[in-house]
């Protein structure tokens, strides 16, 4: 048992979150392997955000069990937070800080030492080709660069798992493609990627996806298997067939 726990980045068993009578998350169970790119799909209001908040150590479940990077969501929120990275659709960089200052700030928040920050930021700036923009305010960077920078910052402290909440909102298709290249690189280096998205072409890039409907995980498999199961060759169709039974209205 202990052995398998170590290989799994995330384990959820019967995880439930209730707000009064309302079951935002209704007994969901799934596992995410280390180094896997796991797509977390669902219509608005299906309970994705609530589930993700629990996994990020931001709120407590009502019942069920879950571990993230081997840490318990009830008792070890602090440990979870140290071992995950997070990026939201807002990209969440400080506009009136320069590129380097943003990197230094987030590095500092995660407790990296000064030499570590220095070394890694130099490396990061080089990889992203941002040498000329280091001293520029982030507010002046194009959206696509901001997004790449936000992702790099989210994995700057080398977390075990990175949570991406609709990370490609409002970004053009080419940049989105490049962004996914970065995700693959991160996954190849051993970081588990947990990503929510509304773009079905992106769902295809994931190793496995789960689809949430009305607080429940209705399907979980690789994109190819899901398409085979629903006798279709498009993920759109898979998603539509699963989600159309939803009773909840989007929030």
């Amino acid at each position: 048992m202990q052995k398998t726990m170590e290989n799994k980045a995330i384990i959820c068993r019967e995880l439930t979150k209730e707000f009064g009578d309302f079951k935002a998350v209704d007994r969901i169970s799934f596992e995410v392997n280390q180094g896997e790119i796991f797509g977390f799909l669902g219509a608005n209001g299906a309970g994705k955000t609530t589930a993700m908040r629990i996994l990020c150590g931001l709120s407590y479940p009502s019942s069920g069990e879950a571990t993230v990077a081997g840490f318990d969501v009830y008792k070890q929120q602090e440990q979870i937070k140290k071992n995950i990275g997070y990026m939201s659709q807002k990209f969440s960089l400080y506009d009136n800080l320069t590129t380097l200052e943003n990197i230094e700030f987030y590095g500092g928040v995660y407790g990296l030492s000064r030499p570590e920050i220095k070394e890694r930021s130099a490396q990061l700036v080089h990889t992203l080709g941002l040498e000329k923009e280091v001293k520029k305010l982030v507010g002046d960077l194009p959206l696509g660069w901001k997004q790449k920078l936000a992702f790099s910052v989210a994995i700057f402290h080398r977390p075990k798992i990175v949570f991406l909440d609709e990370p490609t909102g409002g970004v053009d298709p080419i940049t989105r493609r490049q962004f996914w290249d970065m995700i693959y690189e991160a996954a190849a280096s051993g970081i588990t990627v947990f990503v929510t998205t509304h773009y079905m072409d992106e769902a295809e890039y994931c190793h496995r996806i789960s689809v949430m409907v009305d607080g429940r995980v209705e399907a979980i498999d690789s994109p190819a298997n899901l398409k085979a199961r629903f006798h279709t060759d498009s993920m759109d169709e898979v998603f539509y067939q699963l989600a159309r039974g939803a009773k909840r209205t989007a929030d």
């Binding site: 937070k81 659709q89 990209f91 995660y110 949570f163």
Partner: peptide, 10 residues
Amino acid sequence: GTMEILLVSP
């Protein structure tokens, strides 16, 4: 949206 990031951080 940076508040979210801060809350997720340690």
